[in-house]
Design a protein around this nucleic acid. Sequence first.
DNA 1: GAATCTGTGTCAGTTGTCTGACACATCGAC
DNA 2: GTCGATGTGTCAGACAACTGACACAGATTC
Lengths: 148, 148
Amino acid sequence: MSQDGVALETSLGYVLKEAASALRAAMEDALRPLGLTVTQYACLELLAQRPGLSGSELARGAFVTRQSMNVLLQAMERDGYVTRPAEAPVGKVLPTRLAPDGRRILEKASAEVRAVEVRMLAGMTTTEQSAAFAALRSMVDSLRADET
Amino acid sequence: MSQDGVALETSLGYVLKEAASALRAAMEDALRPLGLTVTQYACLELLAQRPGLSGSELARGAFVTRQSMNVLLQAMERDGYVTRPAEAPVGKVLPTRLAPDGRRILEKASAEVRAVEVRMLAGMTTTEQSAAFAALRSMVDSLRADET
DNA sequence: GAATCTGTGTCAGTTGTCTGACACATCGAC
DNA sequence: GTCGATGTGTCAGACAACTGACACAGATTC
């Protein structure tokens, strides 16, 4: 239905976007049965590895604004996945922690996501994988270097 | 403010998301002075390389739904960047083409985006770049292989 | 010819995320 | 101590993108 592409298909930026889009779609498919969005999963995973993170820190880790993370956290607190103190123990920071239900669903979600990542990396050697990892890290660092 | 990360920072999926997020942010910064969003730019670039593309095809190329692309195209037609026939010459497909103004602004936008991409790839050899390209392509193909 | 996909454009409603703004708390420099 | 810078949580509104649904055109199959 469409003829061959040209420069876009040879652009690293475009493939990067394509890969991220495909990964996100695959993760959404994998997490939908659990009733989780990708951002929610990212939030849970972050909390499992760094308990007590603030909403703003979670937002940065999940690549959304702190406002978005806030509404997300309220919903997840209502659903019993995370717990936050009613008042800030120090300053304004509300440290968030995984609730038992959150830990439980994260376990299932994590398995699903791992499966997706395994599928994504099929056909690549571990050497190629670490090279790709290093390349992506380098891109991030270069982009963040100066916002000009 | 935050201690060292753990598994997330070693996950290829996470760095992929991080890189895509950083690239998108950098592109938004570069395109904002021109009054273009990243999706609009992608649309213009696609049209420059494949004139006469349908809205649905543009949507797939820009990784959005055809509904989203439709509202985008209406706005860009209003702004004089693209042209679409009032009636479909064949079937329901409305072939879209760049208007002179669209070609003009794309030229500036393309230069900005190229600069971002150059900055992103700074510090990588061309060998590393093509390896990264191949790796990303492989990931996309593997993810698309079976939706399960 | 009729029937069944497949693809397209479009309308409507909803949701997620963003920007802008404000008040407050901590840390450091003065 | 005071003052500014930085970080945080939160409210409000705006917007981009999504899902669901419908009608229609072409291709394919029978």
